[in-house]
Computed example of a mutant assay.
Amino acid sequence: MTQRQLSAATGYSHAIVSQWENDLIKPKNLLAVAQALRTSMEWLLTGIGSPDDRNATVSIDGNVSTVEPVPIGTTRIPVIDYVQAGCWTEACGHTLADGSIETILTDLELGSRAFALRVKGDSMAPDIIEGDVVVVDPDVSPQPGDIVVAKNGSHEATIKQYRPRGYNAEGKEWFELVPRNEVYAPMRSDVCSITIIGVMVEHRRYRRRG
């Protein structure tokens, strides 16, 4: 497989694939690379076992075993940044600044506008922390207690808990967006204009080393 073929299969730019091959950077989505190369993530990481064994897994002690394949998601959705999320309902593009398109796989049934967002900041800590990935569906209506992605007139999005608060003196329905971290203040829709972009339908936390 050429670099351009791998680029087309994974959604990353040819320049990014070239940096992988020259060991300048590591892939962010190793699963997509392993699937494109028809091998296992473990073989790519360690070189242990056979590159043809897509079901091979490596235990803590370094022994290779074979496990039953687990069904994986077949829906590929883009991972976007906070600025892109802020204009997502206005049909912004999926391409990242370096020309690549980072994606993740999910087995959820999602709307056509679904996206993933890598969390930054600690406003939702300790439940959702920086570096976590949330899958967001703009076609889902928020319910009390849902985690939502929203914007309040700025160019960037924010992630908070949705809490409807009833009606104000003018008879208009309003809601709060509440952080889990008490250091941050809630946002009120009766004080500032808030647009709900979508509802979090999946939360992923990846193992951190070091």
Rank of each mutant, 00 (worst) to 15 (best):
V148L: 03
L177P: 04
I25W: 09
G166E: 10
A185L: 12
Q35P: 00
K26T: 14
G198I: 02
Y206W: 01
I72M: 12
A185D: 12
S193P: 00
K160L: 02
P51I: 12
G171N: 05
T103S: 15
E102Q: 13
L117A: 08
G166V: 06
R180W: 11
V17N: 06
D127M: 10
S193L: 01
F115T: 04
V134G: 05
S40F: 09
Y82Q: 08
A9M: 13
E173L: 02
E102Y: 05
T75E: 13
T75N: 14
L110E: 06
S18R: 14
I48M: 13
D61W: 03
V140L: 07
I80T: 09
E102R: 08
E42Y: 12
R165G: 01
E182C: 02
V136F: 07
K172D: 12
E90P: 00
S123T: 12
Y12G: 00
V149N: 02
G11Y: 04
N63K: 14
P71A: 15
G73E: 10
P164L: 04
E156V: 13
D53C: 09
S154R: 11
E173W: 00
T195E: 15
V149R: 04
Q19W: 06
I25T: 15
V133F: 05
G99Y: 03
E170G: 05
M41G: 03
P186D: 02
I197H: 01
P51C: 08
G153D: 07
A32G: 11
V133D: 10
I101Y: 00
D127I: 08
A114Q: 05
R180D: 10
L108F: 06
D127K: 11
T66G: 11
T10I: 07
I72F: 09
E170W: 05
D52H: 13
D53Q: 13
I129L: 07
G145C: 02
G99I: 02
D81M: 09
T57N: 07
T39S: 07
